[in-house]
Nucleic acid binder design. Structure first.
Lengths: 360, 360
DNA sequence: CTGTTAGCGCGTTCAA
DNA sequence: TTGAACGCGCTAACAG
């Protein structure tokens, strides 16, 4: 509507110089009580709102960080984002967010847009595929890779124990006397799923079992088709390991349609917890990842870079512990329905984790 | 690391003036092929990144919008945010996001922070309680209220048919011969829940039934306690209507613990769909709200304000249709498992909706 | 304790 | 077709 109010307008009304207003606002230097009162008064009268853009330009600090996740439909990424934003708030930073749809070109374009805005730091979930964010312009801003590392990059990363978690889960299945354990994962080459697959293969081989892997799309139809075929074959699997939530839910759906009883006829175990896992019957056993901690750790690492606390050259690669949550989808258990915590692995991160554990 | 590259650096290297570089970048005015080539060359050599902050200050447009939701844990808000961000992308705008935790003071503080950053428009989910964002400074930036209106405010709003959806659901229960239908909702005064309660009361009264309402906290324990007491009483309810997802899931959980069979012993119906609703047994009937459309519509309304297309004075209050999705949690149905679309109510919005339906 | 000067990087305006 | 000057709103540095 009206021309926007500038600091000089406030100064004029208060009968002081612009600098006095600035000093009142930032409150570091001494200002006489008299002047301060007049300034406050003028600010209130004019509804003055400081212009952060000008301030950003002036001192070359935008007090903004950026986040790029594949999407916000997946509760996993939504929660990560939430956790990151909380840390940003604690530091009085704003959060600019956008999505990549797991496409590396989109990721790159959006990252560049963030750079143009001079965000001070960036947290990204790398897209699958070729090496990304290689251009030198990405070297000038601290970047933390979340959930997935970028191989050969110069970015910090925070991920979870994907292989170890999977091994834990598969071993649990083996402990329940399953031999023919199939691994269900999405097609495509998302890093976390590759890791989980690798963990699966390792666990199977360690038990001298034959790995069977099926890559399927996200569609329920394809899952139904795959599972039906699988179960109709000779020597059908007696257990499924699902590499994420969506896969697990689709499998559950298919099993339900096919009237296959869990855990009697088939056992099933997933990676990543979800709201309903505990409510459905049978309650689903899963490998739980510390989502909030994941986001929080990435954000704290980023801010520690911004504060210059972390030596610039040394890359930090943090791997967070996961835990097996035993419920009822893999057969009878020892009556203990609480998580088996996984402590102090060789991969346990140092430093930051201590701080973040207190909060968890 | 090195001092950042400015436009003048590019100009110098290309042997032209800064304005020529600017023109090449913005591409509106004619620049000789020769000059353009040299500029492009210099840009590449220097890894020049235009400074959007300076540009924002210069032309008083940040090309940013803000979003404030209660949290990102709730898939509902996460999806809204996703949809909004998509629209922002289409307009080449960035999205600044933060959370209010459903606290009106936090909302106000965060909104002010956004204003200082000179976001051009703001989409908020109002917090429960007293009138908000009354200060005159909030009058200078277009604000759209999402999912809940602010009574007596001068903001546009986009919400869903809460009352109507609830009536639809409750009527469905009544059609299944239920008389003692209890309404389970959170304590607190969140607008959507108040509306749903009102719809519930209206539907009950219309059928000459006695409304029974229970306000409970989000805790599973309290839900269990409430439901146990309810079912133990004389003339216990034969059906539950839950005003949101979390409540529904907690109720499901409690019913499961108490070994109450659905739908034989009790029917249950919820407001808002969720991933697992279709997978659990029995599949849960719900009232579905058009989440993506909700976010998208709010964003499009905001951008239409920014473009100056919508007359400034006239407030827009859009109410989006919901649909009843009949599954199995309310007893046998007519074999039709597909949504009963709800078309052309008097409340159906005009204009924007057409555009947005094409996408849905 | 307070005011003045200058410049952050860009693009509009005006002149060449 | 191009360049120089000016100012967007703010604050560090330097007087006073």
């Amino acid at each position: 509507m009206n021309p926007p109010i500038r600091m000089s307008d406030v100064a004029k009304l208060a009968g002081v110089g612009a600098m006095t207003v600035s000093r009142v606002l930032n409150g570091n230097v001494h200002v006489s009580e008299d002047a301060r009162a007049r300034v406050m008064d003028a600010i209130a009268k004019l509804d003055y709102v400081p212009n952060e853009v000008a301030r950003s330009l002036r001192d070359q600090r935008t007090r903004q960080i950026g986040i790029i996740v594949p999407n916000l439909h997946d509760p996993f990424f939504a929660r990560c984002t939430h956790a990151i934003n909380l840390v940003a708030k604690e530091h009085s930073y704003s959060t600019v967010i956008t999505t990549s749809d797991d496409d590396s070109d989109t990721l790159s374009i959006e990252a560049k847009r963030m750079l143009r805005r001079h965000i001070e730091g960036l947290i990204i979930v790398p897209a699958p595929g070729k090496a990304q964010l290689r251009d030198p312009e990405f070297q000038r801003t601290p970047i933390v890779a979340l959930d997935r590392p970028i191989k050969g990059s110069s970015f910090d990363s925070v991920v979870v124990q994907n292989r170890r978690g999977t091994r834990l889960g598969v071993q649990h299945l083996i402990d329940h006397n399953h031999c023919r354990i199939a691994c269900l994962g999405p097609s495509g080459s998302i890093w976390t799923h590759c890791e989980r697959m690798a963990g699966y293969r390792a666990a199977m081989k360690a038990a001298e079992l034959v790995p069977i892997h099926y890559a399927i799309s996200d569609s329920q139809a394809e899952m139904l088709h795959t599972i039906r075929a699988l179960l109709a074959g000779k020597a059908p699997p007696t257990a499924f390991f699902c590499t994420n939530n969506l896969i697990a839910q689709n499998a559950l759906q298919a099993l339900s349609i096919l009237n296959v009883r869990i855990p009697d006829q088939i056992a099933i175990l997933g990676f990543d917890d979800f709201e309903m896992a505990d409510i459905i019957k049978p309650a689903m056993s899963i490998v739980r990842q510390p989502i909030d901690t994941l986001g929080r750790t990435a954000a704290e690492l980023l801010f520690s870079r911004l504060a210059g606390n972390t030596p610039v050259k040394k890359l930090r690669h943090i791997k967070l512990p996961v835990e097996l949550v035993i419920r009822d989808s893999c057969g009878p258990h020892s009556g203990r329905r609480y998580p088996i915590k996984q402590v102090g692995s060789a991969e346990t991160p140092r430093g930051l984790v201590t701080a973040q554990r207190r909060r968890a």
